[in-house]
Simulated assay, not measured.
Amino acid sequence: MQAERGTRYSGVAMLLHWVIAILVIMNWQIAERAEGLDGPLRGEVMGYHKAWGITILVLTLARLAWRLSHKPPALASTLKAWERALARTTHTIFYVLLIGLPLGGWLANSLAGRPLSYFGLFNIPGFPVGENKELAGAIFDAHAAGGTFLLLLIVLHVAGALKHTFFDKDGNLWRMLPFGTPKA
């Protein structure tokens, strides 16, 4: 495993973090907008939600592979034990959701017999499962609940970053930005 220098994440880790973050917020908004639509327009908008979800899945797998092959900087020595535990738990849950939500959506689409087009460029094959609309509906419901939990986790993550920036003034936020001074 290659050691990361200093207290800042690598440029690749930063890029993947921020691109995934932006795509998650964007994809949430696409799904929210689709809720008020009917018929073919709703299907078209949800098609974008699905394609961006697959993109998030691929980027998250790339980020996880990068993290496993490039040791991230150590947590700040100023963190309390509960902050370290919360940081590790939050990051683990982020990975579970960022992988599980797209896979769940993909599985539900497969069970519903719905196509999964990647921005009209090509179709992504469904999972080799039989059609089961009732199970698909249950998975879609779980997918929506997981998406809501992901949003709450994002709020917690941002609140933690703001706490470290404005109250602790420990420079922790700058670990994930190419500017500023991490103090850890």
Results as ranks from 00 to 15, higher is better:
Ser117Glu: 09
Leu64Cys: 02
Leu86His: 07
Leu23Met: 07
Ala81Thr: 12
Leu37Ser: 08
Leu16Val: 02
Ala74Cys: 01
Val158Asn: 08
Leu75Asp: 08
Val58Gly: 00
Ala161Lys: 05
Asn27Met: 12
Glu35Thr: 10
Phe140Val: 05
Pro115Arg: 11
His91Met: 06
Gly11His: 14
Ala34Gln: 00
Ala62Pro: 03
Gly113Pro: 04
Asn172Phe: 14
His157Met: 07
Gly43Ser: 04
Leu98Asp: 04
Glu32Cys: 04
Gly146Met: 05
Ile25Cys: 11
Ala184Lys: 07
Val58Arg: 02
Thr148Ser: 13
Ser117Tyr: 07
Gly126Asp: 01
Ala144Ser: 14
Thr78Val: 11
Thr165Ser: 15
Glu32Pro: 02
Leu86Asp: 11
Leu75Lys: 08
Trp66Met: 00
Ile154Lys: 00
His70Met: 01
Val45Glu: 04
Leu151Ser: 07
Thr92Asn: 09
Phe94Leu: 03
Asn109Trp: 01
Ala161Trp: 04
His164Glu: 04
Ile56Glu: 12
His164Ala: 06
His70Phe: 02
Leu98Arg: 01
Phe140Ser: 03
Gly147Cys: 06
Trp82Gly: 06
Asp38Cys: 05
Leu121Met: 09
Ser10Glu: 06
Asn132Ile: 07
Lys80Gln: 15
Ser117Phe: 00
Gly130Glu: 14
Leu79Thr: 00
Leu135Trp: 12
Trp18Lys: 06
Gly11Ala: 15
Gly105Lys: 00
Ile124Val: 14
Asp38Gly: 13
Arg33Leu: 15
Gly120Thr: 10
Ala138Val: 07
Pro178Gln: 07
Gly53Phe: 00
Trp52Glu: 05
Phe140Gly: 05
Asp38Phe: 12
Thr90Phe: 00
Ser10Val: 01
Leu64Ala: 08
Leu41Ser: 14
Leu162Cys: 10
Ala145Thr: 06
Gly160Tyr: 00
Gly11Ile: 08
Trp18Glu: 08
Ser69Met: 07
Leu151Tyr: 05
